[in-house]
Design a protein around this nucleic acid. Sequence first.
DNA 1: CCGAGCTTGTGATCGAATTCTCGAAGTCTG
DNA 2: CAGACTTCGAGAATTCGATCACAAGCTCGG
Lengths: 245, 245
Amino acid sequence: MADSAPRTIPEATVTRLPLYYRSLLQVAETDLATISSERLADMAGMNAAKVRKDLSYLGSYGTRGVGYDVEYLLHQISRELGLTHDWPVAIVGLGNLGQALAKYAGFSTRGFKVAALLDADPAKVGMAVGDLSVEPMDALDRLVRDRSIAIGVIATPADAAQDVADALVAAGARSILNFAPAHVTVEPGVSLRKVDLATELQILSFYQLRRSNPSGDTTSGDTTSGDTTSGDEAMPPQVSSAQVS
Amino acid sequence: MADSAPRTIPEATVTRLPLYYRSLLQVAETDLATISSERLADMAGMNAAKVRKDLSYLGSYGTRGVGYDVEYLLHQISRELGLTHDWPVAIVGLGNLGQALAKYAGFSTRGFKVAALLDADPAKVGMAVGDLSVEPMDALDRLVRDRSIAIGVIATPADAAQDVADALVAAGARSILNFAPAHVTVEPGVSLRKVDLATELQILSFYQLRRSNPSGDTTSGDTTSGDTTSGDEAMPPQVSSAQVS
DNA sequence: CCGAGCTTGTGATCGAATTCTCGAAGTCTG
DNA sequence: CAGACTTCGAGAATTCGATCACAAGCTCGG
Ligand SMILES: NC(=O)c1ccc[n+]([C@@H]2O[C@H](COP(=O)([O-])OP(=O)(O)OC[C@H]3O[C@@H](n4cnc5c(N)ncnc54)[C@H](O)[C@@H]3O)[C@@H](O)[C@H]2O)c1
Ligand SMILES: NC(=O)c1ccc[n+]([C@@H]2O[C@H](COP(=O)([O-])OP(=O)(O)OC[C@H]3O[C@@H](n4cnc5c(N)ncnc54)[C@H](O)[C@@H]3O)[C@@H](O)[C@H]2O)c1
């Protein structure tokens, strides 16, 4: 069967596909040939209905009464995510974080390949990290072009983030992952995601506080609302953030 | 004064408070005493209505016709997020990433303080990173207790993540930030958030693919990049994921 | 003191995402 | 081959989040 599914995968589903992918990779290492939505849900920390709904956006790849063929599903997801070939990635800013990223092995095993390292600091240029050496910023255009780099990672200080993003886009990158704690805007047609350590910790902090101090702070002493039953209500879920266009 | 607001801040709002906080810190460095929802929205990459709605959950801290008092709002948000004092954080796993995190300055400037470093590798124990030295895992209980650590960061390989999480929880930590690409479960009452580089890149990859190849067929080969001229519709938004309990 | 001009706060609306449910479709056993 | 059992797929219901739209409240000029 060819496909003919309504090619519209909800945003929320897209963010979960990598989780399923990861879990499926684990399963593939065992000898199990198929997996049920329920088991996959357990592994990924989801619930079965959501898994099925998500996977159904890709097409009907399951078999009722049996489950999903692991290899086949892996193939479908990797095709959907574009992991059938490695994406060359450029890392900009080879400080603490940038170097850790550059040396990170898991990078290459998940569909990506560090293809260029750049830094504005002349002292850093020429330095070898992993099996690449750090290049100066003015080599960006050339590197992006010659190495077909579409994804750029920003690991510079916050105040350089926007400039670096602009440079990456100007050079031709169309996807950016920003680790700097700064808001960056990019033109429509370029994807941007961000990872911010402080944000994550602050979210944890919020719920941590709630748990030990259910009221707001100032006075009060109501709340307690809700059904709640077992003491486990003020708990968090999770998210990150990003943006496009 | 007079609170009694329905103390229920939506999950989605909680994840954005840190962004507002960050933007407000920037504004506070200028001489502006107040800021409008519109300007704050610009800075944080949101829209004004959302900002107002979010802030309204904290209480009515704005002044119509004027905007929000920067200092006051900062204070309120930091109180809500529990940033009025520094949270001691333990980092487990001092490899590439763990060391970068331990040396990360921005940590301390955002309401957190690295209070303990732990690693299972005897070769790593004793090593100095920043101004702490790495401790063995069996010191975890003592460190968490003595240093009032509530938040643990996991930077170990994926296969150790669950064990480390269990150890952290057993020691008394109630919030965990997991950098390892593995699904970890924790008991109710403990918050868990995760950051996964590969997931982020894969999401970017998905949209990157969509842009250059609207259908969805395979045939890898090489990138047919050639810059797609500004297509501008199949674009992504963003999110991350996490989970609780 | 009044009216013009901003900007907030929030009810109402819209839409997206999650969860519930259950019929459909397959396997397996005897 | 029938019947019991498993598990998917997807409509319906529900929850949650984003956006709209506008009255209310504040400042300031005159
Ligand atoms: N270190 C961490 O664990 C960590 C964690 C989360 C977020 N971050 C964020 O990641 C970023 C990098 O952190 P770090 O600790 O590696 O900082 P760092 O100061 O060690 O490294 C920054 C690097 O960026 C380079 N740089 C500066 N301006 C540049 C420019 N305009 N173009 C290209 N390169 C430039 C510098 O030369 C330096 O090598 C920061 O924004 C930080 O907030 C770091
Ligand atoms: N390096 C990166 O840039 C990067 C980026 C994203 C995610 N990650 C993830 O972060 C984790 C750490 O990455 P890394 O590159 O630092 O790896 P690494 O191998 O350099 O370091 C792992 C550290 O964890 C320690 N460790 C192993 N088992 C342990 C245990 N049971 N208890 C305590 N400590 C233990 C090891 O001794 C080692 O010091 C990995 O899961 C990786 O996938 C790394």
